Measured scan of single mutants.
Amino acid sequence: MATGGRRGAAAAPLLVAVAALLLGAAGHLYPGEVCPGMDIRNNLTRLHELENCSVIEGHLQILLMFKTRPEDFRDLSFPKLIMITDYLLLFRVYGLESLKDLFPNLTVIRGSRLFFNYALVIFEMVHLKELGLYNLMNITRGSVRIEKNNELCYLATIDWSRILDSVEDNYIVLNKDDNEECGDICPGTAKGKTNCPATVINGQFVERCWTHSHCQKVCPTICKSHGCTAEGLCCHSECLGNCSQPDDPTKCVACRNFYLDGRCVETCPPPYYHFQDWRCVNFSFCQDLHHKCKNSRRQGCHQYVIHNNKCIPECPSGYTMNSSNLLCTPCLGPCPKVCHLLEGEKTIDSVTSAQELRGCTVINGSLIINIRGGNNLAAELEANLGLIEEISGYLKIRRSYALVSLSFFRKLRLIRGETLEIGNYSFYALDNQNLRQLWDWSKHNLTITQGKLFFHYNPKLCLSEIHKMEEVSGTKGRQERNDIALKTNGDQASCENELLKFSYIRTSFDKI
């Protein structure tokens, strides 16, 4: 039985969820670079991206490699990797027998973001014989899940209580170790020597080791999670996991709180800001991140802002960003909400898709409305799209047979046209069989910064309504002859009103 693990408890099935942008060198404390989270699957090609990484700022997932063999891993080693800020997950990587050479110096898994409450997941690794993470000293947050690894031993010899604050939620089941077939031998045991430290858990006094050649490092209890030197002297209180010299914040392997210019500090002093819960960055760093993602459509890219001495992905609820200094300031009234469309555009074809934009005031991208039916549609669209004030790209209304009016965009005031449909149009209306009105132009103002209007096959939309939009939106004169079809717009509506004058002759039985 794995020490510190839980057996036999019912657990939810383990679901495996399925960018080499360097964020800056980590400095003297770390020998390499800070790398983003990685999802490495199918083959070993991307694994080489770990070569210079000291910190993975995010998670590391290595999974679904069915053609790899043990010899493929023999020359692979990433000794610079010290810390993973989120979680480490391995799933069905064939041929991998140990992690001792792959990650010989991995010391800390912070667990800032977890995989279903777990910071370390080893699942269905069919050839893994031992973990071998002999320098792993601290899992700051989260638990361990090690399950269905039929060859995995050296679990009962690990004292997880020396690595985690609590072992109650560890789930370590259905491994070879369960069948008591392992016969784990710690260093020196074969020669009758006791080389590794022994600890007591559940009444068992057991030597602690990761492999037959690597003991588990056990520091004096007084050192807590700070770690200790090879001689057993406690590291500085700002260290986490390990250090090369005692009581020196510049000799830590990793930091308990924050890293700044080669030393570990309790908090980031001005003019620095907390970033990702582990390091200090200056304003320029946060500003660069903001600008890199301002026009990016890459998933996970955030326009970072500053709030409460932190550089964070977005302002919290009730705050909006001051564009001059990136500071989050309290909103006066309802907060603006910028919604970034991942692929640059979004099609609204149902109430469900409209709900995804609920509360958005600025759309960074283009909207395509293609709704053919739905219950209580006008009210639903207004509830979900009615706060949109600005669209950076274009607005396209296409084959939306259920629409009679666009009044559900009740606050839309600006279409920038930074991206144009077919390279020309910022407003595009095609084949809307029941569209009769755009907006009530006596109450609604709309500016279209650039781009043209396109109207074709809107049989109940009168040309007068379209011409009014040209005047109000500032697009009059931009359109070419064929942009607004004269014969297919309003051709099934009563669009022309003329005053009919009647004269009559009164007659009676005795007068003409």
Rank of each mutant, 00 (worst) to 15 (best):
S143L: 08
Y304D: 02
I158T: 05
V206T: 15
P330D: 07
C328G: 02
P31A: 12
H28N: 09
L289H: 14
F78M: 02
H236L: 02
S324G: 03
V200S: 15
P249R: 05
E71H: 15
C239F: 00
S166P: 14
G183I: 13
E33K: 11
M83P: 01
A119C: 03
L102F: 12
T68A: 15
G232M: 04
P249S: 09
C243E: 00
D178W: 06
T140M: 07
S143V: 07
C252T: 03
I139E: 00
V121C: 13
C219R: 01
Y304K: 04
E71Q: 04
E130G: 06
C153W: 01
Q204R: 10
C286D: 03
K80M: 10
N257H: 10
N170H: 05
F115Y: 00
K191A: 08
N150F: 15
T85G: 03
A198W: 06
S98K: 04
K100L: 08
W210K: 01
S166Y: 14
N282S: 13
K191R: 09
S225G: 08
I40Q: 01
C315E: 03
C186T: 02
R145I: 04
F283H: 12
C243V: 00
L96S: 14
D248K: 04
G183A: 09
N195A: 11
C53R: 00
N117D: 10
G142V: 01
C53N: 00
C293K: 02
D39T: 02
N295W: 14
Y118K: 02
L164I: 12
S225T: 12
R297V: 09
G32N: 05
H59C: 09
C243N: 00
D247Y: 11
T157I: 06
C234V: 00
P197W: 03
P269C: 00
L44Q: 12
T250Q: 06
D75P: 07
C215R: 09
A190H: 13
Y30N: 00
V34I: 04
N202I: 03
D75C: 12
P316T: 03
G203T: 06
P316Q: 04
C255P: 00
N117G: 11
I62A: 01
P79Y: 03
K224I: 09
G111E: 00
I222T: 15
R162Q: 14
P246A: 06
C153P: 00
H302S: 08
G111S: 00
T85M: 12
G318P: 01
C280V: 02
A156L: 05
G58W: 06
G192W: 07
T211Y: 02
K67W: 05
D288L: 14
H59A: 06
L50M: 07
P220F: 03
L96F: 00
C228S: 02
C328H: 00
S161F: 06
K217C: 08
R141W: 01
C239Q: 10
R263A: 10
L50R: 02
F258P: 00
K129M: 06
E180Y: 07
L128N: 01
L29F: 09
T199P: 05
R145A: 01
N170L: 09
E147M: 02
F91H: 01
R74Y: 07
I201H: 07
D165S: 14
L327M: 12
N175Y: 02
I185V: 14
Q276K: 09
K80C: 05
D165I: 07
R263V: 08
G32R: 12
P246C: 10
E97W: 14
N309S: 12
T329K: 09
F205R: 09
C315L: 04
E181S: 06
K148W: 04
W160L: 05
W160A: 01
S225V: 06
R298N: 07
F78S: 01
Y171V: 14
S213R: 10
P246Y: 07
L289P: 05
V206G: 14
N175R: 13
T194V: 13
M321P: 13
A198I: 13
C280R: 03
F123P: 04
T45H: 07
L44S: 10
L174K: 15
F115S: 01
Q61E: 07
P104K: 01
F115C: 01
P70E: 03
V265N: 01
C286M: 15
T45F: 03
P270C: 04
L152C: 05
L120H: 01
T68Y: 05
F78A: 06
C196F: 03
T194I: 12
Q287S: 15
S161Q: 13
S166R: 10
E238T: 04
L99S: 01
Q303R: 12
R263F: 12
K176M: 03
G142T: 00
S54A: 11
N257T: 09
G227S: 07
S237M: 06
P269S: 10
G318L: 02
E314M: 04
C234R: 01
C239D: 00
V55R: 01
F78Y: 08
S323E: 10
K80A: 07
P336K: 07
A198L: 12
V265I: 04
G241T: 06
R113I: 09
S225D: 03
N52P: 03
I40F: 15
R110F: 08
D248W: 04
F258I: 03
I146K: 00
D261C: 05
D169F: 15
N43C: 05
K310F: 10
S54D: 02
R46T: 07
C219Y: 03
V281L: 04
V167R: 05
K67D: 03
L131V: 07
H59N: 04
L63G: 00
E147D: 03
I139H: 00
L152P: 09
I56D: 00
R256C: 04
F275C: 00
S161C: 06
